[in-house]
Write a protein that binds this DNA or RNA. Structure first.
Lengths: 190, 190, 190, 190
DNA sequence: CATGAATGAGCGTTCATTCAT
DNA sequence: CATGAATGAACGCTCATTCAT
């Protein structure tokens, strides 16, 4: 008996992220994914029963991986601003180091594939972030504003900073990043 | 593009925006557009030589209309914060009142249709905005930060506020909007 | 403007009957039909929105044509046995002259495509036949047996006789056909 | 065919008949058969080298079993009409008690799988039936008509009667069955 | 100009069959 | 022998584009 091959599954995942970066989520075809993964089209259906399942599973995998990366080095016992900085740096590095995944997540959110179950998943993953915001508000370190606005500001900042670095419009040295974060911090602090 | 019949051209434009709101940019088909505009598919090709041209022209039209709406009531002789407030309110109202266009612009930016010429167009239209930011920085009213970050913060704020109103998560009375704008203003002011 | 082409529609119908005779109903493919009809696969969908619609419409067309052929020369004022003979001969000739249609109808009845609406249609077409049987029973010319059994005997007789002629197991001269019909008549007469 | 494991072979046969009843002959897939039989798809190919072989073998098995059931209780020394009645009852019961097989045989006859060798097989199995008809004709108990017509009448009668009972259109008591058989008998008797 | 029938490459998916384990 | 992952041709169907009318 030949068991399902983890290498092939990983090849499918990698191929799909790579293709989304090149042709966009709506330009994805099962044939292209199979070709890029080095397998036959039919083999795709051994691992995923439909294109929808494949894309939703990829979103789940990607969200989980992103969450882990965002929380890397995060320690609730550290000073609040230091924790904010860690989250900000992690978020920005994640966008730079896993650009294809970031593109995928963004396009997925506006796509026909968005599913309710994955939206709930998103909520779970973001719970720690929302708790973080609430703690900041309680301690009057952060402004008492709707979390959605705070999140938009924070994410907008990391996204645009990463984009500027990608385009080599700004350098990615310590000093520049400190300034960029400082702006974001001033925006949300009380 | 040969605008032989302005009424038909307008029907195509309106039909396309309406369809994007319903089925998304990637769900658009030329047949659907023609049907919604009340013409034959072949006639579409009298006005636009391809789907790509149609979509790019729509993006241009939409961007121009948006720019005009954003600058409505804007007067360079008014106090700076008052001008910022006008731009912020215009931006938010634009998202609420022309939701289909907002959806279209957002999906266009992540799509296979994005063209370099239209990206440049964006810069032209936004020149006034960038001048506005530069003036604020010069007068030390705004932080001296990259304009892209400022723009991200400003747009993130109007987008999320509009979204909260759409979902009826917050009311749209004067007081609430004043608070929402105040947050944004604190974010960018020096 | 180019209107839908009756010739093409007829080509589709003819091609499909011909293919069913060769490869069976379950062996039908849209690509084969298009090829045999001399058109592109996409064109098939101008005339029928799905394979199901095509097959159901063909069944309807075929049943109507069959009904007309069966009733050809039938006159309610003629003697009963003479009318029975007319129906029997028509049924048998129909099977010989339109063999592909007969095959199609038979396979359709046992297939996944059978639809309720077409079953009702069948009832309408057969009403005259059932009335005929009832009249015979009332006049005590026919046995007072369930119509389904009478129909099975009658159709079985015409089907098998036609089949024997097709295989050249028997001749199709007047005398032979008279005997074959006489057997059927003895079977159902009172 | 290598019957390495009779239990598995029987499981395949049972599974296939069961599936044909549910999804029809053209809806059969090797994967479904294997799943229903509790084995792997590859194992199917140990017992049958192709789908065609499987189906043809099933047809052979089914025909043999049917023949045995039809001849059950048949004794050449009994009176002719009594023997006819036994054959008629056996045929009808067979259709009711082994409906899946009856469906299979009927669909097989109109399918792409029909093979010449199995058609010959049919003749062998039916030899006794044909001898029976010839004996009846010789003794001038039966009409001197082509056996194919007699067979069609006889089978049509049992098939339709069984179908009426299945649909609960008629009862299956002794009296009703006696009448149904009487009709058939009148049809073929001299 | 306007029409909509015609086109055919390409889509997501299925499935009989093979073969490494 | 038994397994089930792997294969790829073929399926029904879609759709941007063309073109005869």
């Amino acid at each position: 008996m030949k068991p399902k091959d983890d290498e092939k599954l990983q090849a499918i995942v990698d191929a799909t992220f790579g293709l989304v970066e090149k042709v966009g989520l709506s330009g994805l075809t099962m044939a292209d994914i199979a070709r890029a993964a080095g397998i036959a089209t039919g083999t795709l259906y051994v691992y995923y029963s439909s294109k929808e399942e494949l894309i939703n599973d990829l979103y789940r995998k990607s969200k989980t991986a992103t969450a882990n990366r965002l929380l890397k080095g995060y320690d609730a016992r550290l000073p609040f601003r230091r924790r904010a900085r860690t989250l900000w740096r992690n978020s920005m590095r994640n966008r730079l180091d896993h650009y294809a995944e970031a593109i995928f997540q963004q396009q997925y959110s506006n796509s026909q594939w968005r599913s309710a179950s994955n939206h709930a998943l998103f909520s779970n993953l973001m719970q720690e972030w929302l708790d973080f915001l609430e703690e900041g508000k309680r301690q009057e370190i952060l402004k008492n504003a709707p979390s959605s606005l705070m999140t938009a500001l924070f994410m907008g900042s990391t996204r645009e900073t990463a984009e500027l670095i990608r385009r080599k419009d700004i350098k990615s040295d310590e000093q520049t990043l400190d300034i960029a974060f400082a702006l974001c911090w001033d925006a949300i602090k009380a």
